[in-house]
């Protein structure tokens, strides 16, 4: 029922210059690795990217930075990346920092048809500048506006041809909300399963949010390997 791509280049072909894209993942966990690689190869420029982080210097969204494909980045923590720092200092890259929970909720609101919401996060801080503050029950709250994207890119462990998705452990993170907030959503899945193989009670992202899928092998690079030594 949904478009199933076999080539990553074809899947990202619809991403045009000046597009706004949302990309799932927390750090390098749960990022659609091959879709990002394909965008890096596509030459799409002047992108606005909405994602919690911006990859590392040689992997994930860091690859798009390296190619100077990103004009604006909306995220909550971008500290793992030297090229990011350089481009910000040179004025080549615009950054909008949003508290992580507000970012997640802005994306959720975008997919849920809610234009804006009030949150306590950021009241009295630099990020409140220029934003409406309103009092409820004697407490101040900040107005945060919803985010949507031309194209959303997510990564799931399993998907079927109806677009239903199941994520694995903390690779879920921003992916479900991002899937819902894209006008068009492309899901990169580790395993494309037969119709009827997924248990409807276990599905995290109902297929209605997903327009196309592609199966891809993941490298799953680890940012901070932390091991417990055997006693």
């Amino acid at each position: 029922m949904k478009k199933i791509y076999t080539q990553f280049d074809d899947a990202v072909n619809q991403i045009e210059d000046y597009s706004t894209i949302m990309v799932g993942g927390f750090g390098l966990v749960g990022i659609p690795e091959n879709l990002i690689l394909a965008i890096a190869g596509s030459g799409a420029k002047h992108l606005t990217v909405i994602s919690n982080n911006c990859g590392v210097d040689d992997w994930g969204l860091g690859l798009l930075l390296e190619n100077k494909q990103i004009d604006k980045m909306i995220g909550s923590y971008v500290g793992e990346n030297k090229e990011f720092e350089r481009q910000v200092l040179q004025g080549e890259l615009e950054v909008e920092l949003t508290p992580q929970g507000s970012l997640a909720e802005r994306i959720r609101a975008g997919g849920a048809g809610i234009p804006a919401f009030y949150t306590p996060a950021g009241v009295g801080t630099p990020i409140a500048e220029g934003k409406e503050v309103r009092e409820f029950d004697g407490q101040e709250y900040l107005l945060q506006e919803a985010l949507t994207a031309d194209v959303s890119l997510v990564r799931a462990a399993k998907g079927d041809s109806f677009g239903n998705l199941i994520y694995n452990k903390t690779a879920r993170n921003f992916n479900p909300e991002i899937a819902a907030a894209g006008k068009v959503t492309i899901a990169e899945v580790e395993e494309l399963v037969e119709e009827g193989e997924m248990d409807g009670d276990q599905i995290h992202t109902p297929g209605i949010y997903v327009q196309s899928l592609i199966e891809g092998k993941q490298e799953k690079r680890i940012e901070r390997l932390t091991i417990r030594q055997k006693a």
Binding site: F26, G27, L28, V29, G30, A157, N168, K169, T170, A171, K220, R221, I222, E223, R224, L225, T226, I227, R228, K230
Partner: peptide
Amino acid sequence: RSPHEGEVDPDLINAGKETV
């Protein structure tokens, strides 16, 4: 706790991006 060597799951991290 932190994983033993054979237990590492790259899809399982904490907010500090450490494997757990």
